[in-house]
Design a protein around this nucleic acid. Structure first.
Lengths: 262, 262
DNA sequence: CGAATCTTTGAACTGAGTCAATTAAAGTGG
DNA sequence: CCACTTTAATTGACTCAGTTCAAAGATTCG
């Protein structure tokens, strides 16, 4: 294996002290700690700092880097002809940004930081070549693509839920699970995106998100304080989230999904 | 094109006994004709015949093959705890089936043939190793993953459309575009899935799909005869499909999306 | 402190879900 | 090949959840 430092990658940000991270770091963030070894320690990537509200990649821009979120979070957005901004999802530590670029050589969506964030810059061609010698890196790419697709499956399932309360419940649960997978709380969530962004992602009106959160709070399932959400009763949340089709209500049953979980 | 008779497969299923196709065929189906060369001609894959209604892969089954649809079509389905069957999408010629398996080594969704179909069996590990020597095959994998993600973006955009008529319009348009990319009509579509399956995929009730199709037909945008749909007025369909949020209706404007397109 | 944005809540309207009934198509088996 | 069954598709009527419009708090930020 390559025993010498392969980090030719310096590329674009030589000034600014050029913060770096190793492939091992990336593997850890991506949940592939098992694949870390000495070789992956020697591969270095530059870290790119991204201020809140600014773009990591632009829709339509030429694709030559993948990015692995190191800290902070991003929203993935697509703008249609009419100017409507569709939020496709949110990326947190360990998520790869820009994978759809694989198809056409252009990013299919923009990525905008929701807060002060940073991401490892993975020059794609280089990553592929490295992957031939370091299976860990090849696996990283495959894994990330697969994970992203699984994610999309979940999202589609989420969006096909009849009730908006169920959608919001599923959104919270997924978000919590992802946080937990990173070693964070899983109960105390910081939704650093706006209600409108959540709404766009879920395919509902932003007022509806607000109402659903309020309803969940009223019923003691969660506690909401602005963008901080605490999941008080994970079981109730899970019961709710399970309801797929319109609530199996009977004539004498309550019509709101929330009341069913009681 | 491959001038030698490796492609026994073109459209028919000759006999049982191990039908094959070349990597070149797969590349052609996937829209990567540019990458075909003598080397890819020499790589052969077995073709698997799949009768209508039977499964190509099962959800949760161990992942060791990718499949490239050679003929016919498949639905991708995920079954939730309650037994609800969510249709995630439809695969036609050139689409890779099983990509989500990359993440966890298990298929994330089942694939069921909608009609008599066949698919090339691509042993994953082998494909990756071949990819190291034949860039075309590596590219195939990347391209397919990227394309699948782009597709999902479209689907999410589709599902966030307010009106069900718009959803159906977008569905038809996407389907038509895919058919066209394969060299087929783009106007005359055969929807070989049930209304219920379309409905599940779009996240609406199956009656709603039926009504939307009827409405589109009434307005002369399409012509429906059972599962055969002809797009009579592509422009009108496109206008409709563009409406993202609830129709920008004014007090004196018609409330149905369809009437706006008039 | 104001300006701007985000969030919440209310009220009215309506589009889509549900239930139900009819028609059409596709199998099944004698 | 034709009755018979079963499943798919269409259409109608009714109801309610969610959108839209509007307006009042809350939060952030210059």
């Amino acid at each position: 294996m390559s025993s010498r430092p392969l980090n030719v990658v310096a590329g674009e940000w030589p000034h600014l002290g050029g913060a770096r991270c190793s492939a091992s770091d990336v593997l850890h963030w991506s949940g592939l700690s098992a694949l870390v070894d000495h070789d992956t320690d020697t591969v270095l990537f530059t870290l790119r700092r991204v201020p809140a509200e600014s773009a990591l990649v632009h829709e339509g821009q030429r694709f030559d880097h993948l990015y692995c979120v190191a800290a902070g979070s991003f929203k993935s957005v697509q703008t249609d002809v009419e100017g409507y901004e569709q939020v496709l999802g949110f990326a947190i530590q360990g998520d790869l940004v820009g994978l759809e670029g694989l198809a056409l050589g252009r990013y299919g969506a923009g990525a905008v930081a929701l807060e002060e964030s940073s991401a490892a810059v993975l020059p794609f061609q280089q990553l592929v070549e490295l992957g031939h010698r370091l299976p860990a890196l090849e696996k990283l790419l495959h894994r990330a693509a697969g994970a992203e697709l699984l994610h999309r499956n979940d999202k589609q399932y989420l969006m096909s839920a009849a009730s908006s309360e169920v959608r919001v419940a599923r959104f919270l649960q997924h978000f919590a699970q992802r946080q937990q997978a990173l070693g964070h709380s899983g109960r105390r969530l910081r939704l650093c995106m706006t209600r409108r962004e959540i709404a766009s992602c879920l395919g509902v009106a932003h007022e509806t998100v607000s109402r659903a959160l309020s309803a969940l709070a009223h019923h003691g399932v969660i506690q909401v304080s602005n963008r901080d959400v605490e999941i008080v009763d994970p079981t109730a949340l899970d019961d709710l989230q399970r309801i797929t089709r319109g609530a199996p209500r009977r004539h004498d049953a309550p019509s709101h999904a929330l009341e069913l979980a009681a």
